[in-house]
Design a protein around this nucleic acid. Structure first.
Length: 383
DNA sequence: GGAACCGGGCTCTGCCATGGGT
DNA sequence: ACCCATGGCAGAGCCCGGTTCC
């Protein structure tokens, strides 16, 4: 999508060349059949089956190319859309323009989710209004569409959307929370009502089975902590809960606190991912002299570490070890792994230059906010 | 007044599979 | 045989600062 972000003049150039190149391509690569038919029609007077629809399709494709749509990509994604008749790309274009979307955004949306072309203006309008009951401006919605066109256009079942909104309110979520869901996990709203209900019911069952008496509060808490939960499968969430339970030998109470607290975010790790990353962490730390208990305690105190893939985790540890920071310092200050490798490296260098002895001093400042860290560094350099 | 503790803010799409409908 | 709607999947961090503690 780099070409969509380049400056306007180049963009114009791009569109023009796309248009010329694209139409040539279309004749030679995609439609020998159409070419044959139109030739035979012209020269031999043979009547084509699609004599009316083919020119229409040509016009559609040319119009899309002129709009800057990557037709090749669109066709590859949803070929069916281009076999249909009666698609009016102007409707979608005008609709989106009226909502404040720019040409590039519109082209990008169609390229990535061509089925958008099959929606009627009435349907889109109704859907948009429903989203607007949650969002305060059209531009916020345009922004979501740009990021995730599929979420908005994948379904045209507006009754389902309406029911989803009602359902989410009934779970006790505020409009502000729905706004966050729509922003971060727009797919939630195009899930079937039933699927969303399944997840909520599943979470309530987990809550009850762990001996908590307020399942509604519990579910609300999880969703607030992890707005992505409703776009995961219950299978995935179940696997992660079981992973937490079996890895850390927690009692019901502890597990419950973890799930709707610090552990909420790691629930959407993909199936084998939590296990894989945990295994890697364990191997790496044990190879550096940690015991299994220490590893367990470390991960439990900083579950976000499970998000780190093998390479990233190992690289971070290595870059700390290289600077004579001991493994026990690391596991006692897990939050330093919050920082990116480049932050770690630049701070380590600055601190060493300032005469700070990392192996004997506190290392938690490696993950302080920029502001606090700079203040501290200034003080060190003044000594 | 500086450090520790801790929670929170950003943040999630684009692809494939499947079953149903015509 | 085709398209559509929908479910499910893989992939994977970094930063900030309020409040409390000493």
């Amino acid at each position: 999508w780099g070409y969509l972000t380049i400056l306007a003049p180049r963009n114009l150039l791009y569109m023009r060349s796309r248009f010329l190149f694209g139409s040539r391509c279309w004749m030679t690569r995609f439609s020998p059949e159409i070419l044959f038919k139109s030739v035979s029609f012209r020269f031999f007077g043979v009547k084509s089956d699609n004599e009316d629809s083919e020119p229409l399709k040509n016009r559609l494709l040319n119009n899309l190319l002129t709009m800057g749509v990557d037709v090749d990509m669109a066709k590859k994604r949803q070929p069916g859309v281009f076999n249909r008749t009666g698609i009016n790309e102007q409707d979608l274009k005008m609709f989106l323009l009226s909502k404040g979307a720019g040409q590039e955004v519109i082209a990008s949306i169609i390229s990535r989710y061509p089925r958008a072309l099959t929606r009627t203006t009435e349907n889109l309008s109704k859907r948009w209004d429903l989203w607007r009951t949650i969002m305060t401006s059209d531009l916020e919605i345009v922004d979501i569409l740009e990021r995730s066109p599929e979420s908005f256009f994948r379904s045209n079942n507006n009754v389902n959307l309406e029911n989803n909104i009602k359902f989410l309110y009934s779970v006790g979520l505020t409009r502000k929370c729905l706004c966050r869901l729509l922003n971060n996990a727009p797919r939630t709203f195009s899930n079937s009502l039933d699927l969303n209900k399944q997840m909520v019911e599943f979470l309530q069952e987990v809550c009850l089975s762990l001996g908590h008496s307020h399942p509604i509060d519990f579910v609300r808490k999880i969703i607030l902590k992890n707005p992505f939960i409703l776009i995961q499968s219950t299978k995935r969430i179940k696997a992660n809960i079981m992973f937490l339970q079996s890895t850390f030998n927690l009692n019901n109470e502890e597990l419950l606190v973890l799930i709707c607290g610090p552990g909420a975010e790691i629930l959407d790790l993909s199936n084998a991912c939590a296990k894989r990353n945990y295994t890697n962490i364990k191997e790496k730390l044990c190879s550096l002299g940690c015991t299994e208990q220490e590893v367990q305690k470390f991960v439990l105190s900083y579950l976000d570490v499970l998000f780190l893939g093998e390479k990233k985790f190992n690289d971070k540890i290595d870059c700390l070890i290289e600077e004579k920071i001991s493994i026990s310092q690391i596991i006692e200050n897990p939050r330093i792994l919050d920082s990116s490798i480049s932050t770690l490296k630049s701070r380590i260098k600055e601190l060493v230059d300032a005469g700070y002895n990392l192996s004997t001093s506190n290392i938690s400042l490696l993950s302080w906010s920029q502001k606090r860290y700079k203040t501290k560094l200034k003080m060190l350099n003044m000594r």
